[in-house]
Design a protein around this nucleic acid. Structure first.
Lengths: 230, 230
DNA sequence: CCGACTTTCGATGAGCGTTAGAAAGTCCCT
DNA sequence: AGGGACTTTCTAACGCTCATCGAAAGTCGG
């Protein structure tokens, strides 16, 4: 049994089923996505949540707190997929392909910009600590996958840590132009969707890493089978 | 013959040889780089330039104007290198390798963050128009290089435009973690410098694109010879 | 019905980017 | 040498932002 609307009523009379926190997160997420974090004001977030500006601070300590809440989802989605991929088994190369493709797709689809976090979050530790830890976890997992692939002879001999960093940041970089493409319509008259891009990025990465490059077709087929378009 | 200190003297008595514009650009560039664009205030820029806050507006229309001035350099440096590479001749694959490596190196070295521009500049056209046009020019050039490489049989058959976008954004993505690495010391206990990273990124890209992957060693050797560490 | 708790409000303050107009010099012409 | 034009900087002010504070308006449990 849930209490019904405890607390002072809102000025505009609106009521919110479920936690206002969630409503704020949803609204902020969309605004951050549309206008960028820097150009989104607390007033705007409050207004669209049916609240006065200062009321948002009852639910969140400050603006960055909202950000943290949103971005922590990003890493978590990919880490979850990592677990699934691990559970499914298959060769290291196959798991790597699936992870990279999923990550790139996720980046393109993600409600807003991971790159902005690097700017806003890089300095102020503490609050973003969880984010960076999970990021590190992801990076270690990819590095381990690469090391495994090298060990079993499927991949060329590269530095696993460096390669993991480069591959993950490739995915993030992809988001840059994909997002601006959305705003400007197309790039160079062509249109690409997240599926195409993600698949191509994964293809290119493994074509560069595999000893036997013909293997890529097989990996792609497996990935499309196990992680279909949703 | 140059006039000596026309205009009202500064409050703090400081004098500036050369144009204050250049001083402001230099100061802003460093601050943007250290703290990010979003967290750099006009007061801080002014203070370090020996000016009062509002005096900066005599030299620049607004904050973004300073940004535009700085970032326009980024594309231009790479476009210049493109010209040099074109003039030097060599196979399409060789020119592509050199361009990618230079771009990645440039990104790591660049005083501040290209990714932030995508966020801040994406929406407000006009002022950033030149930046985007030059970016497009670069992209077209890379796509043309790839097309040429496919035509002469050196590269696999890929979509030149899509590949160009992905490769360039890879370079940009690299900057993300390279920069945060610098702040946090190292990543995973390892240390990488821009040369290593850039060379690896170019290696990986061409290993994925070349039909004959053994060719990479040759391309790398040529690139190191023609574009030595500076 | 009353006190405790929850949620929102309105008022307020410090700090930001930006604008406007005055001020303090140099330069050039007579 | 004097004075007007020009250049560069200043001080003062405005409107907007994020954030804090204490009061207010409801529900809940006894």
């Amino acid at each position: 049994m849930r209490r019904r609307h405890v607390g002072r009523p809102r000025a505009d009379g609106s009521r919110n089923e479920g936690h206002p926190r969630d409503e704020i997160i949803a609204v902020a997420s969309r605004l951050f996505s549309e206008h960028g974090v820097a150009r989104t004001t607390m007033s705007e977030i409050a207004r669209r949540s049916g609240l006065r500006q200062s009321s948002v601070y009852y639910h969140f300590k400050d603006r960055d707190q909202i950000l943290v809440e949103i971005v922590s989802v990003a890493n978590r989605v990919i880490l979850e997929h990592l677990e699934r991929v691990t559970a499914d088994g298959g060769s290291a190369a196959e798991r790597l392909y699936r992870l990279l493709r999923f990550d790139a797709r996720q980046m393109c689809r993600f409600a807003f910009d991971i790159n902005e976090i690097y700017r806003l979050g890089a300095l102020q530790d503490e609050r973003f600590a969880d984010f960076w830890n999970e990021r590190q976890e992801l990076n270690d997992a990819v590095a381990a996958l690469i090391a495994e692939g090298i060990a079993d002879g499927a991949l060329r001999e590269v530095d696993p840590t460096l390669t993991a960093l480069v591959l993950l940041s490739n995915d993030e970089g992809t988001q840059n132009w994909f997002r601006s493409m959305g705003e400007f319509g197309q790039v160079g008259g062509e249109h690409y969707d997240p599926e195409d891009i993600a698949t191509f990025v994964a293809d290119l990465a493994l074509a560069g890493l595999l000893r036997d490059r013909d293997e890529v077709d097989h990996l792609r087929a497996r990935a499309l089978e196990l992680d279909p378009r949703d």
